[in-house]
Structures are given as C-alpha cells and as structure tokens.
Design a protein around this nucleic acid. Structure first.
Length: 418
DNA sequence: TCTGGGGTCCTAGGACCC
DNA sequence: TCTGGGGTCCTAGGACCC
C-alpha cells in the first residue's frame, strides 16, 4: 500500500466520523425561573442564592426538582424531599415549577440551535444533540460549541454546557464534566485521561441497582469497567452488560434522531393529596386521568392497543395491570371501560392508595386501523362525541369540560393544560 | 411535612401453535 | 414410558433516563 493510499484512507476515516454536540441547560428549571423572574422585575437572581424548584408539598409531591449551585454546596440533591433539603439549609428558598414556562424557554433554545443544523434531537426539555457533520464548512466543531455557548448566554440569558465529541455518548459525558457555562471535548484519545478515572456511577445508563453489583466485582471506575472482560459482562448482565462495556470504552453508533417521532405510549398519573381506599373515588380519578390521556392520544391522531393501570399503595408498593384491546381505539368511553375493569381486577379492597396512573401503549396511526363492518357505526358515534369535547377544550382550555364532574375537593386532581 | 411525573426499553414466564 | 423445541404473543415488573 502506498503512502498516498494510507493518507487517503485516513482522510476518509476522519471524515466519516460524526461531529456531535450535546447542549445541556445548567439547572434548567431553576435557571429559567431566574430569567423569568428577572424579566418580571425581580431584584434577586435565584441562581446566586441557595434556592430550589420544588413540587407542591400540600399535594405530597414535595421533592427537589432543580437546585442552584449554592443549594448544591449545602449538599442538597435533586429528588430528595424538601423537608430534607431544609434540614441541610434552613434559609433555603423554594419556588414552584411551571411547565408551560419551561416549554417556552426550551423552544427558544431549539430555535437558536436550528441556526446551526436542522439535525437536532430533542433529548429532553433541556437537552439537545446536534449532528454537525457536513455543516462545519471549514470551521471546527469546538469553535461552533463556543459560539453556541456564548450566544445562548447573551441572547437568552441562561447558560448551557456543551459537550463536543464524535458520538452521542461521549458528547453527553463531556457536557456533564464541570459546570456551569462550560465547553468540554471528549475525543477518543481523551477517553483514558478524562473518562476512565471517573466513578463508574457517572456512566450513562448505570443506575442505583447496577452500581452495587459492579462494586461487588471490584469495578469502581469507568476505566475498571472498560478493562473488564467483555464476554464476562455479557454473561452477567446480558444486553445491558454489553452496552455498559461499550459505553465504558466510548463506543456508541447511535444516530442523532432529529425527525419528530410520535410517542410510543402516553400516560398520566397523580399522587393523591390523601390516601384513598374506596373504589368510587378511585374511579373518579381514573376517569379524569383517562380523559386527559385519550385527549392527548387524539391530538396525535393515534389509537391505543393496550390499556394500563398503575396503583401505588401508601407503602410505596407499585402494581400495574394491562390489557390488550380487541380493537385499537382512542375513545374515552371504550378506554375507560377497560381501565375500570383493570382497576377492579387488581385492587384489593381496603388498601390505601397513594398514586393512581393510567397509560395507553402499542399506539398506531389512526389510518392504520381496519374497521370491521359491525363496529363501524359505534366507532363513528364515539368519535363524534370525543371530537366535540376536544374542540371545546381546545377553545376554552383543558379544564372547561370534563366528564369527571363531581370530584371531591380534597381529592381533586390537578389537571394540566395539555 | 419523607419519597413527582412522563417516558423507553428489556426480561421472564405462561399460553399457544406448529 | 417418553414427554422436544422454536417462535410469537401477552402480561407483570424492573431499570433507567430527565
């Protein structure tokens, strides 16, 4: 092989590498709340004081959803109770969440990022992957990352971390390095120095159940995992084992999924303000949840094949039951009938219930349905009723019309505008 | 005044069919 | 007098993500 050939092959290999950025909003809910408050004329920036965004304690949802750096310095972590957080920092400020506002800021970020590439995967409300391959035009990926970082701060008022790499995994790991307002690279040659010394719990997809098992195998750092025998990992953990071994070695061939995808399942659940142990009240809440879920289902133009009900007891024991439908549907009535049956089938009389949830799965496009001659008429009738209800909701707001009429005030579930 | 809510994907066992 | 085994569908539950 000639020198030229080798050069050419190297050139192709380098060029085939994907150019990936991961943009991650720092303390998203808290930062966005801060920006919004400043815009409303507030004279404090809650990013600069010990503060958190928290759930509603009166509804038994009092956990930390996001924290300021100062709150973090007190040892406060996301997911813990506000009660615990206040024990660590008595002068902690707590602000409520506002999903509608978050969505607006998320959209602003997305619009800015669209100026760099249209290959953007919205990974969550505050994270995006950008496929910058073929968009660099002589500029470097790192320069683009710095530019995005600066522009977001200047134009939108909040900060982001940007991870720079050749695949999604490494870009995401990189954006998670030091925070806030930073740009980090994690190229293949940097894996041993930047990623392998990290505790294995920092690796994506390694959660609280897997970590102790790895510790038992004397795997403490990502490097330990990377150097563990691949076949042993597969033997012990199956598919998951292979994936974590590949992640530890920086291997990830997944594409930036930039096309809008309809959901594969839709669900709503709610923690009840007080435990409930009687069926009629559980049914009322279940109906309200079903209306909410089927409304969203119809907005997507989808039909459900599976109905699923979840119950959580006051002791935090979860149960789910699901049922495949004879025919896919989006009808509130038909789905509620199934949900109600599932509730009866799984509920042990007298058990105090803390949370109730319902979801639909195995969704298909409405036009994929083949209607049999016999149920055509009934389906059309149900469709009409649901359509009228949906249009009223569109026009006057979600809570205007509901079949779950007489919810008792103390159990009234908060319905979100969807 | 302990412990949210919305998702996706995987596993495992039983039923059923060939 | 032995009781296969592959494939698919269905259901329950678990793990993980933000």
């Amino acid at each position: 092989m000639t020198q030229t050939n080798i050069c050419f092959i190297m050139y192709v290999v380098i060029n085939m590498q994907k150019q990936i950025l991961h943009v991650d909003v720092n303390n998203a809910f808290l930062s966005w709340t801060a920006v919004d408050m400043l815009k409303q004329g507030s004279n404090i920036d809650i990013r600069e004081i010990p503060a958190v965004i928290g759930g509603d304690e009166s509804r038994r949802a009092g956990i930390v959803l996001a924290k300021s750096p100062k709150a973090k310095m007190f040892g406060i972590s996301t997911g813990e109770t506000l009660y615990q957080a206040r024990m660590k920092c008595p002068r902690l400020k707590v602000y409520p969440g506002n999903y509608k506002m978050y969505k607006q800021y998320s959209e602003k970020l997305y619009q800015l990022l669209l100026q760099y590439t249209d290959k953007i995967e919205r990974f969550s409300i505050d994270e995006c992957f950008l496929d910058m391959t073929n968009t660099l035009l002589g500029d470097t990926l790192l320069n683009k990352a710095y530019e995005i970082n600066k522009r977001v701060k200047k134009e939108l008022g909040f900060t982001v971390n940007v991870g720079v790499a050749h695949n999604k995994l490494l870009a995401k790991m990189a954006s998670d390095f030091t925070k806030p307002d930073r740009v980090h690279t994690l190229f293949e040659e940097e894996i041993p120095s930047k990623m392998w010394p990290l505790p294995v719990s920092d690796l994506l997809m390694l959660g609280r159940k897997t970590i102790p098992k790895l510790y038992n195998m004397r795997i403490k750092t990502i490097g330990d995992l990377a150097k563990t025998d691949k076949t042993l990992m597969i033997k012990k953990f199956g598919k998951h084992g292979l994936m974590m071994w590949e992640y530890a070695n920086g291997i990830d061939n997944s594409e930036v999924n930039y096309k809008f995808e309809k959901p594969k399942g839709i669900g709503n659940s709610t923690t009840l303000p007080v435990d409930i142990s009687d069926i009629p009240k559980l049914e009322e809440v279940l109906l309200a949840l079903t209306e909410q879920v089927t409304y969203r289902l119809r907005k997507y133009g989808l039909l459900a094949n599976v109905v699923n009900v979840q119950l959580r007891t006051k002791d935090f024991e979860d149960k789910t039951h699901q049922r495949k439908l004879v025919q896919a549907t989006s009808s509130t009535k038909d789905i509620y009938i199934q949900a109600k049956e599932l509730l009866h089938e799984m509920y042990k009389i007298g058990t105090p219930i803390r949370l109730i949830g319902m979801r639909v799965d195995n969704l298909i496009e409405k036009d994929e349905l083949q209607l049999s001659f016999f149920n055509q008429e009934n389906t059309e009738k149900q469709d009409k009723i649901d359509k009228v209800v949906d249009e009223l909701k569109q026009k006057y707001g979600y809570n205007t019309i509901t079949r779950a009429g007489k919810l008792h005030s103390e159990e009234k579930i908060k319905l979100k505008d969807v």
